[in-house]
């Protein structure tokens, strides 16, 4: 359903991505791994419309979605969860989630739904807390949950396990597995392949802005 064709990206004189192409099938989970600085985040951001490619194209169901703004991509069902969680600092956890849901539901419904989702993900104990004051693991879960709340078809998870302790890695894994069972199409990045095993159907290895192994 997602096709990336010859995407390159340069910033200044540095080539961050060089001619990247791959396909993603419906319902598939792709593990994207490679060392730090290999361009994984940049690739994901380009797919989600957060950055624009210098050249190349991205297609969603044969529709050219290259360089559409992120809010449009969300409408089309492609959403990106940041590597470093970017939650809304001045809001509570509940409001963070509810504000995303408000794109689709009324205010009251959004709050109700948000509560339900937090309960589902065992996060209801921090519902009323401001995001500034939650732990990294919690904030990671919230970032993923926010992306999930847009009801996506393609979910892009950038290093969902970074900086988590064993227990939290387990928790996040469990959630991702659940999303997988729901049939969501996903790309998950990590700098280690090991952590993605059993999670992904297929792997791509990036190095120096190129796909070196598939």
């Amino acid at each position: 359903m997602l096709k990336v064709r010859n995407v390159s990206k340069s910033k200044g004189r540095v080539m961050i991505l060089k001619n990247v192409s791959f396909d993603l099938e419906d319902g598939e989970t792709l593990g994207l791994f490679g060392p730090n600085g290999s361009g994984k985040s940049t690739l994901m951001k380009i797919i989600a419309g957060i950055e624009t490619p210098s050249c190349g194209k991205v297609f969603l169901d044969d529709l050219d979605v290259t360089a559409l703004p992120p809010e449009k991509m969300v409408k089309l069902g492609v959403v990106y969860a940041f590597q470093i969680p970017r939650n809304f600092r001045e809001m509570t956890v509940l409001e963070n989630l509810a504000v995303v849901l408000m794109n689709y539901h009324s205010v009251d419904e959004s709050f109700k739904l948000a509560r339900k989702m937090l309960r589902d993900w065992d996060l209801d104990y921090i519902a009323e807390r401001k995001v500034e004051f939650i732990s990294h693991g919690e904030s990671r879960l919230l970032e993923i949950l926010k992306a999930y709340a847009t009801n996506p078809r393609v979910l892009l998870l950038d290093e969902p396990f970074a900086g988590l302790d064993v227990e939290n890695v387990f928790k996040v894994r469990e959630k991702i597995e659940r999303l997988r069972e729901e049939g969501l199409t996903m790309i998950i990045t990590s700098h280690r392949r090991g952590i993605l095993s059993n999670l992904a159907d297929r792997f791509l290895k990036m190095e120096g802005g190129k796909i070196v192994e598939s």
Binding site: I50, P70, V79, N87, M91, A98, V99, M102, N103, V107
Partner: peptide, 26 residues
């Protein structure tokens, strides 16, 4: 303050790019 618009605005106050990334039409 209690409307969608008010909440969207608060999200934008916190983080404009993150707001766009979850589909808010900034």
């Amino acid at each position: 303050l209690k409307s969608k618009l008010g909440y969207f605005a608060r999200a934008i106050k916190s983080d404009e790019l993150a707001s766009r990334a979850v589909g808010i039409e900034v």
